[in-house]
């Protein structure tokens, strides 16, 4: 009984996170401005990291933890670099 509950809640959590990733991807693709796209990318990274943790719980393997950590690191560095670019690169689209 309880393992069925866990199986289904993992599936539902993954679907919710997938919808969340879709929302972030929509904001990243549609914009309207460059800062909205970068914000969408940052949210997408965070959601992908949480998705990795959920996949880890589903498979019971701790490899996905490391993937989640790498995604978190890359998301931080990428967003900071893009924000810096918005400040220093082109000013007006």
């Amino acid at each position: 009984m309880s393992s069925v509950v866990l199986t289904w809640s993992v599936v539902i959590a993954q679907m919710m996170l997938a919808v969340a990733m879709a929302c972030a991807a929509y904001r990243m693709l549609v914009g309207p401005r460059a800062q909205d796209r970068v914000l969408g990318l940052d949210t997408l990274y965070v959601n992908a990291m949480l998705m990795m943790l959920t996949v880890g719980i589903r498979t019971g393997s701790d490899v996905y933890f490391e993937a989640a950590l790498v995604i978190a690191l890359l998301g931080f560095v990428g967003t900071v670099a893009l924000a810096k670019f918005l400040m220093r690169g082109e000013v007006i689209e």
């Binding site: 309880s2 393992s3 509950v5 866990l6 289904w8 809640s9 993992v10 539902i12 959590a13 993954q14 919710m16 996170l17 919808v19 969340a20 990733m21 929302c23 972030a24 929509y26 904001r27 914000l39 969408g40 949210t43 965070v46 959601n47 949480l50 959920t54 719980i57």
Partner: peptide
């Protein structure tokens, strides 16, 4: 533990989903 993990997962994913809905 299975119930706790399931509850925590659903809560976490739900809050993240609400946050991302805010993007829209």
């Amino acid at each position: 533990a299975a119930w706790c993990v399931a509850l925590l997962l659903l809560l976490g994913a739900g809050i993240t989903l609400i946050g991302s809905l805010g993007m829209l």
